[in-house]
């Protein structure tokens, strides 16, 4: 419940403040968001599985974001930033799909 509330608060803040993305963060923000979404879906799945753990969630959330950002940064430095971010998005997308499928099975038994 707190999590949903916090998400809503964040969305409202983003809508109200209308900030612009700093130019240095522009390549990382989308990847970081996708990575965080992956962690969130994993957390929801774990919650439904009954194995949710606060600490684990926080650590995986932060590390997901950091690792995703690091990979993009590394890709930029190596000159394959676009491809590498695509790869990260694909991997995270696959994982999100898997987690969403598990959640779906929990909720709808199908």
């Amino acid at each position: 419940m707190i999590a949903v509330l916090a998400l809503a608060v964040g969305v409202v803040l983003g809508l109200v403040l209308e900030p612009t993305v700093p130019i240095g963060l522009q390549p990382y923000l989308p990847i970081a968001v996708v990575a965080a979404l992956d962690a969130v879906f994993g957390g929801v799945r774990a919650k439904l599985d009954g194995i949710f753990d606060d600490k684990q969630f926080v650590v995986s959330f932060v590390s997901n974001v950091l690792v995703a950002g690091l990979i993009v940064y590394l890709g930029d430095k190596l000159g394959v930033g676009g491809q590498l971010s695509t790869g990260v998005v694909v991997v995270l997308g696959v994982r999100i799909f898997g987690n969403v499928a598990a959640i779906r099975r929990h909720l709808f038994r199908a």
């Binding site: 707190i2 964040g10 983003g14 209308e18 900030p19 970081a32 965080a36 979404l37 606060d54």
Partner: peptide, 25 residues
């Protein structure tokens, strides 16, 4: 409502914020 819960809330709030910002930009 432990500190971990607060951190989770913070992270999710951050996520929502970043999501909206990214969508808008």
């Amino acid at each position: 409502f432990s500190s971990a819960g607060a951190v989770i809330g913070l992270l999710l709030g951050l996520l929502g914020f970043a999501l909206v910002v990214q969508l808008r930009s």
